[in-house]
């Protein structure tokens, strides 16, 4: 099991080593580092299997965050940095990963990582991060067939949810659960724009709506919105959700209703998808180099 360290605002820093793998017997060892705006993950893979990972908060500078996470992943394994033959960086700080030979965008890495975590049947991946929302359709090998990324508008991102959790003074961890505590499902908030939705919600509260009813209306609006984004790339089952909102039952269950599909349960923390994908690309690139 993963050992857990300091508690941060909404998730725990953690690291893990796979007890069933002896890395000294592995032929190919690769690394993947995903430097996001909030968290940084480093994973080490042995022959394409997950050997170790570390998940930390991103500090003020990307190179240091990448280094810290990478070192923590190696900690206690007896492995040295030089044993990792190829490392790929991804995420928004991907060009600032010092040990990486190559940087690859999060869309490609995410798709590849989702294929690893959920198995080859997953075809549609929704990733809802703090500041963006991605919809990706992939084939059975994890290759991207169609994608879109919405990072212009806060509606449909974790940030939009935070605005509501602030407005209602309810912890971001509880909003999803609370939104389920309604007898009758209210109509969704009609404004898509977070700023206007906030004004609308203030009006609803003034009319005497309970907080959980307002949350239900917002979670429903959010589910409707990401559904629209998903429809642009086309929804094919199986379907999986990653990113912070994957933990928000209020949005997830309403989205599942709209799609008529259940989301798959992952093998690992979904935050790792990008880093795992990066390490798998590293393996492919290394094999290509060796052939030359």
């Amino acid at each position: 099991m993963a050992e857990e360290k300091k508690e941060y605002w909404r998730w725990l820093e953690s690291r893990w080593t796979n007890p069933n793998i002896n890395w000294r017997q592995a032929k190919i060892i690769t690394g993947g580092v995903d430097v996001g705006s909030v968290s940084t993950q480093a994973v080490i893979m042995a022959d394409g299997d997950l050997y170790a990972f570390a998940n930390m908060r991103t500090g003020s500078d990307s190179p240091n965050s990448a280094r810290n996470a990478f070192n923590w992943a190696l900690e206690g394994t007896g492995m040295a940095e030089t044993d990792v033959k190829y490392t790929v960086g991804t995420g928004y700080g991907r060009v600032n990963v010092p040990m990486a030979k190559k940087a690859i965008t999060e869309i490609a890495c995410h798709a590849r990582g989702a294929n690893f975590m959920y198995g080859p049947t997953v075809r549609t991946v929704l990733d809802m991060g703090g500041q963006d929302c991605k919809a990706i359709r992939i084939d059975d090998k994890g290759k991207v067939e169609s994608f879109l990324m919405n990072d212009k508008c806060a509606a449909g991102t974790g940030r939009g949810m935070e605005v509501f959790s602030d407005l209602l003074t309810i912890s971001i961890n509880d909003v999803g659960k609370m939104s389920m505590e309604v007898d009758v499902e209210p109509e969704p908030v009609s404004s898509t724009c977070v700023i206007f939705a906030k004004t609308e919600a203030t009006g609803l509260l003034r009319q005497g709506w309970a907080k959980n009813k307002v949350l239900a209306a917002y979670c429903r609006a959010m589910a409707g919105r990401v559904n629209e984004l998903l429809q642009r790339v086309g929804v094919v089952k199986d379907f999986a959700i990653t990113g912070g909102i994957a933990k928000n039952i209020g949005v997830v269950s309403r989205l599942e209703n709209l799609l008529g599909l259940k989301a798959l349960t992952p093998r690992h923390d979904t935050q790792l998808a990008g880093a795992i994908g990066a390490a798998l690309f590293a393996k492919g690139l290394l094999e290509k180099d060796l052939k030359k």
Binding site: Q131, K152, C153, A154, R159, G160, V163, C193, V194, I195
Partner: peptide, 9 residues
């Protein structure tokens, strides 16, 4: 930022 919410940050 091209969004009022992100512009606030």
């Amino acid at each position: 930022a091209q969004c009022a919410v992100f512009a606030e940050s």
